[in-house]
Design a protein around this nucleic acid. Structure first.
Lengths: 220, 220
DNA sequence: GTCTATAGTCGGATAGAC
DNA sequence: GTCTATCCGACTATAGAC
């Protein structure tokens, strides 16, 4: 990963929107997401991506500047798809509890996708190179999660919880969800769906609690 | 990572015990743990390890068969050190709540070490190659955690919780702890210590709960 | 847009002198 | 035990024909 911040796109396919996406580019994107999630940046070879897509290796350089550019595109794609999946199943009415449940159900429905995203984020975070657009994409995911949940929890609890309390609860949920994702990477037998549902029940139960100091055991 | 299950040790340094450890081997081990935790198996180069240890690259092959052998040794070392750290602070008397608190405090005290272990496990789990001794080491960690907590929780709750209920609680704790570790990899500002302490309070509170069906929100 | 061929580089691993 | 020199393979990336 060489850091050339000024990597001008070689060809069309207009950034992250605009998507004149030549079907081939889409194939490369899909395959890259799978491979980068499975095997770490340096373990994935361009030849491998070529084989998996059925495209000549040179074609990859036709659509992307270099391996890093492709990696960046992959991360951005993963975040975008997750948020789209959430929006696609967002209920029409504004029921805040439904919004919370929806975010968690998105994790069940898009388990594969989010697992890939978390896995790639871990790899990237512990690599030496920083790429602004990748940092932004990762931030977009976690801040998106925060904003969705904060708005819903604030509305659902109608002032019973302070903003600070809500922030702490969200950090907790978010941490647990990350745990679910890694754990299902490490242990194939792990029941991620059940783990997310536990959290959903807990979260919805919390929304009905009078306040956070009832004395019964609670994460905080 | 080529899989040669029958990799006979080239030189002495007797497995994982016996430790006639030639100081150099120890240096290599330490540096490797850092690097493999930072950079994924294939991103770490032997030359890099040489530079970081101040040893000639050929020396690494004097002490270890090949890169994979060194990696395996690294994982085994991490697990062993974690368990040793836990045992070192284990209280003399058999108070079960102190045992639970001790396991969690070990995570605070040895945050770096366990974070490295989890990071390496994630990398390894999602690589193609399986190495029996690495699988065993990872299993040893999670089963060790399970056994420590199961015994303590069983004793602390004196039959109020069934074995199945205890297993579910442990899976939950364990998942959350994994979440804490990844999150502190992804986000350097994450307060891992506070997150572990939240869990400790929650866990000890649970041990004092009459049963698991009090109606108040609880993860299960 | 697609493919072949290849330049250029780097990393793992060993042989063998000291 | 330690170091130099080096072989071999693999990978990124490009030039250029079609």
């Amino acid at each position: 990963m060489t850091s050339s911040a000024t990597a001008a796109r070689k060809v069309k396919s207009a950034g992250r929107s605009g998507q004149r996406a030549s079907k081939n580019a889409a194939r490369i994107r899909d395959v890259s997401l799978d491979l980068f999630a499975q095997k770490s940046f340096s373990a994935v070879t361009i030849k491998e991506i070529g084989q998996a897509t059925g495209l000549n290796t040179a074609m990859i350089y036709y659509y992307f500047d270099d391996k890093e550019d492709l990696f960046r595109d992959t991360v951005e794609t993963a975040v975008q798809r997750t948020m789209e999946a959430f929006e696609a199943r967002r209920p029409a009415d504004g029921d805040p509890e439904a919004v919370i449940a929806n975010w968690l159900e998105t994790h069940v429905e898009q388990l594969e996708l989010i697992r890939k995203f978390v896995k790639i984020s871990v790899d990237y975070a512990s690599s030496a190179t920083r790429v602004a657009r990748i940092d932004d994409a990762i931030k977009r995911f976690y801040e998106g999660e925060h904003d969705i949940l904060a708005a819903a929890m604030s509305e659902a609890s109608k002032g019973r919880f302070s903003a600070a309390e809500i922030d702490r609860m969200i950090e907790l949920f978010s941490t647990y969800l990350d745990g679910v994702m890694v754990r299902s990477v490490i242990d194939p037998d792990f029941d991620a769906k059940a783990a997310v549902h536990s959290l959903r029940n807990y979260a919805l139960g919390l929304m009905h609690a009078e306040d956070l100091d009832e004395g019964s055991p609670r994460l905080r």
